Computed example of a mutant assay.
Amino acid sequence: MLHWFSDGNFPLYLAPMAGVTDLIFRQICKEMGADVMVTEFVSAEGIMQADERTRKYTEFSEEQRPVGVQLFGADGERMGEAARKIIDKGLAGRRPDFIDINFGCPVNKVVSRNGGSSLLRDCPLLASVANGVAKAVGDDVPVTAKIRIGWDADSVNAVEVARTLEDCGMQAIAVHGRTRAQGYAGVADWDTIDAVARAVAVPVIGNGDIATGEDLAKRKRETAVSGAMIGRAAMQNPWVFREAKYFLETGKCMEPVPMQERWELVLRHCRLAVDSGRHGNERQTVIGMRGRLMAYCKGFPGAKELRQKLCQVESVAAVEDLAAGALEAYQTTTA
């Protein structure tokens, strides 16, 4: 059993999101109360070809444990070799706590290569991938999987897929309550997530539309899931983990995070990203962060104007100036 589910624990996972859940953002969310981390998905072929850019996605710090490295691909043998390489060679400088297989990504460039959610249409192939990784890894580290509820509304097969994955040795299954066809639109189907959780003996982690402590409490109370995974809500509000745990413990909502603290986190993220040098020089890093900065500012006073300015920033100093101006305007209007 995965130790983070022991003693009645109900762990909160940070969902793996390409271009979002990098080393730094995972660090921030861990500080905010996220229990389990999963890396951005990593191409098994990239690992096998010793691609340095791909290997960077496997990096994590000791403070982030428990953390898993998520792989995608469609060749069970190659996937298994890649998983073995991650474990044996310590590509991240250390061994992960688990290997996770991506059977849920809806993005065209992954699906077109028969990876991610495309395997939901081919259960024998999905089983061969899961078996390939589980056999290659053996008892060294657990193997888990993430799925969607099906390819489209006419082929919702999450219960069947989950039973197959359990038979293949997966030790936990995360279920995003949407089909591949939905993308991120519509409402997550927690009835299907609940059905999956009741159909298998391994822990099931529910994912979809959890943005508040009330959302989390409802899903914990009304379904059989053993944990929850939070993704898009954390992009604009990484405090969601702290807020959700507080609600579970007290039944009350935390006070809103002060604007000063919100802006301090935005600036800290910028500085950490630049200092890491992982994305090039300062200008390249800040330009690459524009989308992230705009996500943070969703719901801020004057958000529309802020987003227009943030999509032009090229330096930390420019973000600092925007923060100072926004805070001054906010304090004036609330005085």
Rank of each mutant, 00 (worst) to 15 (best):
W4L: 03
G8V: 00
A18T: 03
G19R: 02
D22G: 13
L23M: 03
Q27L: 13
I28W: 03
I28C: 02
K30E: 05
V36L: 04
S43Y: 06
G46F: 05
I47C: 14
Q49E: 15
D51I: 01
K56L: 08
Y57H: 10
S61N: 09
D75R: 09
R84K: 15
R84Y: 06
I86W: 11
I86M: 10
R95C: 08
N102F: 07
G104Y: 04
N108C: 08
N114G: 00
S118I: 09
L120I: 06
R121A: 15
L125P: 00
V129N: 08
N131V: 04
G132V: 02
V133N: 13
D139K: 10
D139G: 15
D139A: 14
V143K: 13
V143Y: 11
I149T: 07
I149S: 05
D152I: 01
D154C: 03
N157W: 06
N157F: 04
N157E: 06
V159E: 12
A162F: 07
E166H: 08
C168K: 14
Q171W: 05
V175P: 08
G177C: 01
G183M: 05
D189G: 05
W190V: 00
V200H: 10
V202W: 08
P203T: 05
G206C: 03
G208N: 02
D215Y: 02
E222R: 10
E222K: 11
A224P: 12
G231S: 01
A234V: 01
N237I: 00
P238I: 00
K245Q: 11
G251W: 09
C253W: 00
M254Q: 14
E261Q: 13
V266E: 07
H269E: 06
V274M: 05
D275H: 09
L293K: 05
L293I: 00
M294A: 13
K304C: 01
K304D: 10
E305R: 15
Q308R: 15
A317S: 09
D321R: 14
A323Y: 05
A324S: 11
G325F: 01
A326T: 15
